[in-house]
Design a protein around this nucleic acid. Sequence first.
RNA 1: CGGAAUGUAGCGCAGCCCGGUUAGCGCACUACCUUGGGGUGGUAGGGGUCGCGGGUUCGAAUCCCGCCAUUCCGACCA
Length: 564
Amino acid sequence: MRFKNAFIPTLKEVPADAIIASHQLMMRAGLIRPLASGIYSMLPLGYAVMKKIMQIIREEMDAIGGQEFHLPSLNPIEIWEETGRVEAFGDILFQIKNRPYVLAPTHEEVITNIAKNHIQSYKDLPQIWYQIQTKFRNESRPKSGVIRGRQFTMKDSYTLDSSWEGLDKSYDLHSDAYKKIYERCGLKYFIVGASSGAMGGSGSQEFMVESVAGEDTLVICSECGYAANLEIATSNAKKIERENSSNSLKEISTPNVKTIDELAEFLKIPATQCAKSLIYLNDKEPILILMEGNDQLNESKLHSLFGMNIRPAHPEELLELTGADAGSIGAIGLKNNFKIFADKKLEGRNNLVSGANKNDFHILNVDLNRDTKILKYLDLRTVENGEDCNCGKGKIKITKGIEVGHIFKLGTKYSESMKANFLDENGKENPIIMGSYGIGVERIMACHLEQNHDANGIFWDKSIAPYLIHLICVNSNSEKVVSQSEKIYSGLNEIKFSVLFDDRKDISAGFKFKDADLLGMPLQIIVGEKNLSNDLIELKERSNGKRWTVNKDLIIEEVKKFFS
RNA sequence: CGGAAUGUAGCGCAGCCCGGUUAGCGCACUACCUUGGGGUGGUAGGGGUCGCGGGUUCGAAUCCCGCCAUUCCGACCA
């Protein structure tokens, strides 16, 4: 492609709306342009990258026996009503105004509909069906460029099996295929165990890319490979042992002490010697939760233990329920008969400091065994950076991640609600056992950019680069330089190497270099007067800045060598 | 959906508080000259419903009200 004819609208300045690196680079390098919030046009260079990514996905899906479909995005709302997902998706589901249709945010319903009509027997199974399609989700807050949009491209696949063992097999095939896809795209990723949540089924994993732009907080251990969402992560945080003797309770005045840190400072004790009390209302029933010192309560864990209707009490409610404000609440001397739960780390502790349920007073020497009725010790704390991992070897690192893939053992949720059954060997009717698996195509591109750039621009991996080579004719006024670069251009075209040829006239050398670095093709070939007078052509590897020269007659061989 | 900010040329911004010539700057764009290995320098140009609607006023980019859009923080995210 000749740059002169190419539509590559690069920008010198960063658009004010773009905050994260990948979004800025996509805008500056002319890969995308916004149309509306969360909706982007893919420009030729951006779409070239998408096509490369989609091709890699196709090859790996085909390799595990996947069959490619192209399913409609416009769906009759009734199939979504059958599975109860009109309500489940709520506002996320785009609904068509002048006909009872929806824009599909995913395709379990359509797949199950086809399966219902055409899968009759265990002999028809297993199946792996996939497609690469535009998905529509009415995100309330699109953000981070293409990472969270209202319209995006997804490879989604679905497996149909006659047994749970078959599902495990299909699931593992996908897991392996996904690993290959990310590796081929040059992404550093890791796999996070996830709970199956409201999707139902027996398991799910997320494929995450570490990034400051990530929306998920992740916990990883460098030693054992443990990786989990912070919401469910656990660690081997140091537990303090019970002291040999428990001293007797003593109420003391602690004027103006509100926080654990202030309390620890006031009493000259470690924060870990304090028991922090939190009041939650579980469907209006107050419960008291004890945490050690500055440990943070993990509300996700609370929700999975108590359900979604649990919430922290408001300040007025605190005062009414305990007679004290936050900071002076404790497990001893409560007016009401609270149910008390405590974090596992506090199990068996004594000589603790706790609020006295009287403003500006605390109680010393609390022995949880002796002085309180703890209903149950639960894992409630949020894991913190630097704690020991459960494996005993590594330390926990907390980081942000972007989800680039999710694989799910669905089970029979959809086949049951839509009555997609098959006859087994015994002639008995059973619901098809399903799995569903997704990869965000634009997210792969964005994550690749997050991981592969510097202050000047992109460096594409050769597997997904829009062009392998950026050929720069430095001096467009020099006959010799122009004819030499033309010669290299046609030579590379002959051997089918994709080249972006900067043949623009009257553009200064610096401008071309800056554009080349911004656009990020893996190899730059620089044809300029100085080197050419010695019959030399310069090459530059974008990712590491390495430069070298070769004789002009050896350039094709050198390129072949570089990409071999 | 809650909180905040912003909206002036393709992009980045100033002007607004304190209303008053023809709305300004940088980049980009057009023409010419210049330069020619890291976003050359210059001259001359083109491009604006000042987000939309209403109000106050002799007069509104500027003040007031409503709406819309965009971004950020939070909630939500099968």
